[in-house]
Design a protein around this nucleic acid. Structure first.
Length: 428
DNA sequence: TCTGGGGTCCTAGGACCC
DNA sequence: TCTGGGGTCCTAGGACCC
């Protein structure tokens, strides 16, 4: 059976709530809700009453008035997650964490040393329960996708490892919504063609699926229907973006207060980036209006940055671009994200050439050519940048004057990393 | 369901270059 | 000068996940 893999998906049940119940005997057996304004996690006792993650606190209270609401203790969750991960590392050579409470394990070939997938799964559950005191559900199959579906079917506190001969029957009996990656919108599209289960999908030829849903989606539907998911389990995937956002309530919000939130977000994002030694080129502003419709505006800088002032200045500009919309429709959320992360040794943009106080004029061309250097220094000072690029100036709406030759500007090729030329990002 | 915060990936059009 | 094709980058939005 060359090529057949064995994948486990392990998921801590109601993770935050389980940690709270573990640490406070009085909470055991009772409905527990973690988080105040919004439900971050609900214990299974609370779920039985209809409480769900992401739900507003008020609604949760109506559904389950006797629930105990506790504030999240992030340190405890991070510590528990790290201990569980260490146990997983003992169980399998390849472990891919996907979130604080979830991971994939590749246990292919371990049967040669007497460890079956089901045996590893049972061992994991037993040791996590004994050493960390938390319930863990494990699903197993020959693909990631099916391992995750099996895990979902085994919850809570269960183990379900599919035998190879049972996989297709199990898969095809599931509703399409059970497939990770198929959400409400995709379910709706499939439903319009009379497709409700994975079995319905499997009954259609690939050409039909491609004709209906396009090459990418159609091909993917066909592959999952036949349990062909070759996505490998790999450790240490590099992060692609850093972001932070803040809900504002219905408002109205004074511009100065919005600006203060923006500043706080830029600070938070860039501090996390600097801690990780990362920097990025694309700044994205996210705005949600009073009617809860959300838009994004983004700008790509010539050089990477992890500086709060640069991110803030860019976000302010982007926000100014939608000022009219915000004034008319109100504002309920602002967010800032930085993507376009590059290798750590690429040059950094130290500060953006945006100066709100600048009057938009350049120094006159110096009569004495020797004074050009001085003028350039003045320009650098005005724009507050060490890496003065033509692109940066143009983007800032500050076309360089004719007397400033290309040689006076740092060409983008010197600094701005072009994708495809820079080495792939190393794992964060 | 009167609505948090953190992410990933995909699509599509336009600009620009060769 | 006109026409064409292909590739990359940027921007905006959407879907999905925990």
């Amino acid at each position: 059976m060359v090529g057949v893999r064995a994948i486990l998906h392990a998921d801590l049940d109601a993770f935050y709530a389980s940690v709270e119940q573990r640490d406070d005997v009085a909470l055991r057996g009772r409905p527990v809700v973690v988080g105040g304004g919004v439900v971050l996690a609900a214990s299974y006792e609370a779920r039985a009453r209809g409480v769900r993650g992401g739900m507003g606190g008020g609604q949760a209270a109506r559904l389950c008035p006797e629930a105990v609401v506790v504030a999240p203790r992030w340190d405890a969750y991070v510590e528990a997650s790290a201990r569980v991960r260490a146990i997983m590392e003992e169980a399998a050579p390849e472990v891919e964490p996907v979130s604080i409470d979830e991971a994939y394990l590749d246990v292919t070939g371990l049967e040669r040393i007497g460890r079956t997938p089901a045996g590893v799964g049972a061992w994991l559950r037993r040791v996590v329960r004994r050493e960390v005191g938390l319930p863990l559900t494990v699903g197993g199959a020959s693909t990631r996708m099916l391992a995750k579906i099996a895990c979902g079917a085994a919850k809570p506190d269960g183990l379900r490892v599919l035998a190879p001969g049972d996989e297709l029957a199990f898969l095809r009996a599931r509703p399409v919504g059970a497939v990770p990656g198929i959400g409400p919108a995709t379910m709706e599209r499939l439903s319009a063609f009379g497709i409700a289960t994975v079995g319905d999908l499997a009954g259609l030829p690939e050409e039909t699926l491609v004709a209906w849903f396009g090459a990418h989606a159609g091909g993917w539907f066909h592959r999952i229907a036949h349990n062909r998911d070759g996505t490998p389990v790999r450790r240490g995937r590099a992060r692609r973006s850093f972001g932070a956002q803040a809900a504002l309530g219905r408002g109205p919000h004074a511009p100065a207060l919005v600006d203060a939130r923006l500043l706080g977000l830029a600070d938070r994002v860039t501090r996390r980036m600097r801690e990780k030694g990362r920097a990025g080129r694309t700044i994205t502003l996210r705005v949600r209006f009073g009617d809860y419709e959300a838009i994004t505006r983004s700008r790509t800088l010539p050089l990477r940055t992890a500086e709060s002032a640069v991110v803030l200045a860019t976000a302010r500009e982007l926000l100014a671009g939608v000022r009219g919309e915000v004034a008319a429709r109100g504002l309920t959320l602002v967010g800032v994200a930085v993507s376009g992360l590059q290798a750590d040794d690429a040059p950094l943009q130290l500060a953006l050439p945006l100066d709100e106080d600048a009057d938009g004029t350049w120094p006159d061309e110096p009569d004495d050519p020797r004074a050009v250097d001085e003028a350039l220094d003045a320009v650098r000072e005005r724009f507050g940048t060490a890496a003065l690029t033509r692109g940066a100036l143009l983007r800032a709406g500050a076309a360089p004057p004719a007397w400033l030759g290309p040689a006076d500007l740092v060409e983008a090729a010197d600094g701005a990393p072009r994708s495809g030329q820079s080495p792939a990002s190393s794992p964060a």
